[in-house]
Design a protein around this nucleic acid. Structure first.
Lengths: 244, 244
DNA sequence: AAATTGTATATTGTCAACAATATATCAAAA
DNA sequence: TTTTGATATATTGTTGACAATATACAATTT
């Protein structure tokens, strides 16, 4: 019962309020509790977290640097609204970083890493058979987490995670069709083959293509889904020429 | 005469003190006025900038996110000390991002961009002949700025610039030998050829290799230069196994 | 009704003060 | 001389307050 309190105290000693608030705000944004464009009232947030506005503002500055919130002078902080073009660009960079991570993993992959990845692919196959997109989504994230972890490149990992967070700003989650899941998992299998073969150049190409294919799959499924946004179709139509 | 004042007021209206302080601190770190490991006394900085500690702390949080400063609970902020391993990792990521930028430029390069780059290569040749490493260094930065600018990919540009800033944390600037400058500029020429040919895959490979070669050249020149740091040789020797 | 003005409220940007922690100083003991 | 301990100082983490700005709302005019 007192555990919560002592935990809180211990945490309080180890981390500044700013760090705690920052992590919580980040979670709220990435999880979609706070939506793009939402105004972030400092007072309200401070009271909710039981702190003063200082730590809240400091946390916001960090999130601003991480591209999760924007600020307009004398108007405060807002959850960043990301345009389709910016989304595409985030995915571009994310793809090359993931490609790098895959290449690196291919040059030095452990038997255990291969086993973990193969297990996940099998589980994803099960999710496809069960037509459980939610489970597939979760396992898919895990797959990428594991590749990144075993690539053991802190800086690439950090950059990649930051880009992932940023891409969570777009939050039209539409259903993934079984056919697309199959396609995606086939790419996973190809990647693992490249890891096993130690073919860095191939792993890199496949990792990069897999990222971009994921983006295309997401974009297509959003475009097909008329229910998501009123103006979405218009935006998406213009999107093709968005990166000249 | 009143221009300064009105400018200052306009600036003050457009930007928060936090933004101003952040930019200035960033400049001071990147330019080496503040050196890695330096403690950043909030009071002192606040007084120097003529503001209170609040904006200074907010600026620090942003710089912390940008990896330029670190913080230890109850001890404050320090200019980040970057290990050789971390430096190498920053260059790794920077290389793939620059490769991406080069590939992109190759797919859509203007005659003007080619001309600007060729001019710069000629000027760098002049700098080499004049044995003026400082001029070469400046022109080299300009060369990369221009490739990035003409690639017109905001997110890649931003990521790249951030990584460049980070790599400025290591600041053993040793002399560049003429032979190395020649080598570097030959790579520039190869890049521009790839741009002109519109060969994205080649441009990418060359861009990436040029980045990594630049890192190697820097590392070698530091290693050869015994005068830079007392413990540098030891650190560099241990670099392979330095981060267990 | 629509637009405009004026006023009240809310929110931000900034600052100064306070308590908790870390660092520096110095005396006493081993 | 070095180490330990106690005390004073400096610095941080955090808070609450204040002025400037923006927003919301009512009254007024067109």
């Amino acid at each position: 019962m007192t555990e919560d309190v002592s935990d809180a105290i211990a945490l309080r000693r180890a981390e500044s309020l700013t760090a705690i608030v920052q992590k919580e705000l980040e979670r709220m944004i990435v999880d979609g509790e706070l939506r793009a464009g939402d105004r972030l009232n400092e007072q309200v947030l401070a009271q909710r977290f039981g702190v003063s506005r200082g730590p809240v503002r400091e946390a916001m500055r960090a999130l601003e640097c991480a591209q999760l919130v924007s600020t307009r002078m004398n108007q405060g902080f807002f959850v960043r609204e990301i345009t389709p073009k910016e989304t595409a660009e985030v995915y571009d960079v994310r793809a090359v970083v993931y490609g790098f991570i895959c290449a690196r993993l291919a040059t030095n992959v452990s038997a255990q890493a291969l086993k973990e990845l193969e297990d996940l692919i099998a589980q994803m196959d099960d999710a496809i058979t069960a037509n459980d997109p939610k489970a597939y989504y979760r396992l898919n994230l895990q797959f990428h987490d594991i590749t990144i972890h075993h690539a053991s490149h802190d800086r690439a990992q950090q950059t990649y995670r930051s880009l992932i967070n940023e891409s969570h700003l777009v939050r039209q989650r539409s259903l993934i069709e079984p056919e697309r899941m199959r396609e995606s998992n086939k790419e996973h299998a190809g990647l693992v083959d490249a890891f096993r073969a130690g073919d860095a150049e191939l792993a890199r190409r496949l990792g990069e293509e897999h990222s971009l294919a994921g983006y295309r799959r997401w974009k297509d499924s959003v475009a097909e889904d008329g229910t998501s946004l009123p103006a979405a179709s218009k935006n998406n139509a213009a999107e093709t020429k968005q990166a000249p």
